[in-house]
């Protein structure tokens, strides 16, 4: 779906940290250290960050600056982490958030 910009006509090469591995729902994904978790997910084409508590509807990035809290996920066991402003580190365990849990609704 989405991908990274290779060379930007105005910004040139956009500086990135070291490439690192992290997991999304247990699957290995590549990203760059220090970029927001949400950016790494988006670059990997992963759109759905969570399913809402009441209606179980999918949500993803909306404001990308930490205001709307729609992009929250369970990160290293902590729920409600705003992935658009939380820097990625190597080995992070990022999980889809169902309500406020990382367990799908049928298992809750």
């Amino acid at each position: 779906m989405a991908e990274r910009i290779k060379e930007h006509p105005i910004l040139g090469d956009i500086k990135k940290g070291e490439p690192v591995k992290f997991t999304f729902d247990g699957k290995e994904v590549m990203g760059y250290e220090g970029e927001p978790i949400a950016a790494a997910l988006k670059a990997a084409g992963l759109m759905v960050h969570r399913y809402t508590k009441k209606e179980h509807k999918p949500r993803g990035i909306f404001c990308a600056i930490g205001r709307c809290t729609d992009c929250v996920m369970v990160v290293d066991g902590v729920p409600n982490v705003r992935t658009c402003i939380t820097p990625l580190t190597a080995g992070m365990e990022v999980k889809t958030q169902y309500g406020v849990s990382d367990k799908p609704f049928e298992e809750q």
Partner: peptide, 10 residues
């Protein structure tokens, strides 16, 4: 934010 700060296509 995605394209100009993080270099990711929206």
């Amino acid at each position: 934010t995605m394209m100009n700060l993080h270099g990711v296509l929206p």
